[in-house]
């Protein structure tokens, strides 16, 4: 009888458990028919290595997370009005999430707030936006990047030196943060004077002219730092043309090919390089998590790297400096 008893108990347990185990099976099956996540990525510009690299990283993540990625950008980099229009259009399409690289910190805030009304999570990337509705910020730690540049420049010029800064847009969040990081670091050294700060408004030509002026006004300048790709190209050209190459220690930002050439020729001593590929990748993966309703960290910083002649040909840096196979 005890055999029958134990048998019956075992059977009963099996019968009770069966629905449990079988309920797992459809869950597994769901994955196959899993809906694609639709993510709109609105950036500042559709051209240039920087944004193309972001796009490349985003596409790698899109493939990995089964995402349909719409890559959108206005014609010109600082056309925030067009960006607002893109944002409105995107909201009306009701994607699962929006990634926004805001051209203007304040102007895009309202549009971002509106997306939350339709329950569309927004991940801000590269540049922050004035909205509390943003799920997270994926991007370069600009303050730290500024500090990195300052640290290396101080190493190169010594603790008694005059330094000039070529920044891009005064009031632009990234520019301000980089500048702030830089200034905060050099403020530790009483012997270091920041003699001039110029803003080129993301214009290579203006940067070139401003740098020439600066070099003319302050011929005893020991160090120069340019805080964006455009200002670096302009400043680099000015330094080279005026024959200051190697005499003035120069730290550049980002990695346009022109700068690498200057780096190899030792006109530029080092450059702070962001990782746009990772930015794109992380932004999409964060957006996927946000679309699923997961809680995210307030900030997901991506590292910057200080590249100099010594490490520019390290395999891991080559891919960072030259993201495209041409």
């Amino acid at each position: 009888m005890s055999l029958v008893h134990s048998l019956s108990k075992g059977l009963l347990i099996m019968i009770l458990l069966l629905p449990l185990t079988s309920s797992c099976a459809p869950a597994g099956n769901l994955q196959k028919g899993e809906q694609m996540t639709v993510i709109d990525m609105i950036v500042k510009m559709d051209r240039g290595d920087y944004w193309s690299t972001i796009k490349m990283g985003a596409e790698v993540a899109a493939k990995e997370y089964n995402v349909k990625l719409n890559f959108l950008a206005p014609e010109n980099e600082n056309d925030y009005k067009e960006q607002i229009v893109l944002m409105e259009q995107s909201i009306s399409r009701r994607p699962d999430a929006i990634i926004l690289a805001a051209s203007d910190y304040e102007a895009l805030g309202q549009a971002t707030d509106r997306s939350s009304y339709y329950d569309i999570p927004v991940v801000s990337m590269d540049s922050e936006v004035a909205s509390t509705k943003v799920q997270t910020f994926v991007g370069t730690n600009n303050y730290e990047a500024g500090q990195k540049a300052a640290e290396r420049l101080v190493e190169l010029t010594g603790k008694q030196s005059d330094i000039g800064i070529v920044n891009f847009v005064k009031g632009a969040r990234n520019a301000d943060q980089r500048e702030e990081g830089f200034l905060d670091y050099v403020a530790r050294f009483s012997g270091i004077r920041v003699v001039d700060i110029q803003y080129c408004g993301s214009d290579e030509e203006l940067a070139y002219r401003l740098t020439r002026n600066m070099l003319t006004n302050y011929p005893s300048l020991d160090g120069l730092v340019s805080l964006s790709a455009e200002s670096s190209i302009g400043a680099g050209r000015a330094v080279e043309e005026m024959g200051y190459g190697g005499k003035i220690m120069m730290i550049a930002f980002d990695n346009p090919p022109e700068m690498l050439e200057l780096l190899q020729e030792e006109t530029v001593q080092a450059m702070v390089v962001q990782n746009p590929f990772n930015n794109g990748y992380m932004a999409v993966s964060a957006a996927v998590k946000a679309a699923r309703g997961e809680k995210l960290e307030d900030k997901i910083p991506t590292d910057t790297k200080l590249i100099d002649l010594e490490n520019m040909l390290w395999p891991e840096n080559q891919k960072l400096l030259f993201p495209f196979v041409k």
């Binding site: 790698v60 493939k63 990782n275 990748y281 590292d303």
Partner: peptide, 25 residues
Amino acid sequence: KKGYVYIIDSVGNIVYHPQQQLIYA
């Protein structure tokens, strides 16, 4: 959808990898 191909040389250096940057990072 998710699968990919990568190439390494005989000692394990990456020749091609779609996520090369992520690996380095």
